[in-house]
């Protein structure tokens, strides 16, 4: 996972990862913070500080190197990205699309906001690079269109593949 988080300036990496694997991602973030400061923007209530603290073995200097901000609705996601300076550290955006799946916001507005969010991610990637995680989308056309909007904007896309079922063991008798 750490290798996946290897970021380069002027590009942003997208990882499509089911939410159930967030612990692995959070552990990777803690390990990355052992070497450099990080900025984490949590857009889907994914950042569990207790998991990170455990992965950092309670070392405060590591925990203090990770700066975290959360957004709870898609409007806040855009404001959060807009107000994040290009700064001094790589940025990790967790579960970018989660709030954009809120059906209480009209789809046109969600697309408009997502476009703004993607422009800001592009801006943030200029110096240190940005890592963005999203989950596989629910099977509705609106959600798929948002998913595609993000996928087509990313510099590099990595998708988690569910391991194929192991072939059935042969019977001994």
């Amino acid at each position: 996972m750490n290798e996946l988080l290897d970021l380069h300036s002027n590009q942003w990496k997208l990882i499509i990862l089911p939410r159930k694997y967030r612990t692995r991602l959070l552990i990777a973030i803690a390990q990355l913070a052992e070497h450099s400061p990080l900025k984490v923007l949590d857009c889907g209530r994914q950042y569990d500080s207790s998991i990170v603290a455990r992965a950092a073995r309670g070392r405060e200097e590591i925990m203090d190197r990770i700066q975290i901000q959360r957004a709870f609705i898609c409007y806040e996601v855009v404001k959060l990205l807009e107000r994040t300076p290009t700064g001094h550290a790589p940025t990790i955006v967790l579960d970018l699309l989660s709030t954009f799946y809120d059906e209480n916001v009209q789809i046109g507005m969600r697309q408009f906001l997502l476009q703004s969010a993607l422009l800001h991610i592009q801006r943030l990637s200029y110096k240190f690079g940005v890592f963005v995680s999203i989950d596989f989308p629910p099977n509705t056309s609106n959600e798929l269109s948002l998913f595609e909007q993000v996928r087509s904007a990313a510099s590099q896309v990595l998708a988690y593949e569910t391991p194929a079922d192991a072939s059935q063991q042969l019977r001994l008798f």
Partner: peptide, 11 residues
């Protein structure tokens, strides 16, 4: 509301 949470460290 469109207020952004203030940045915090993990601690």
């Amino acid at each position: 509301k469109e207020q952004v949470e203030r940045p915090k460290t993990t601690s």
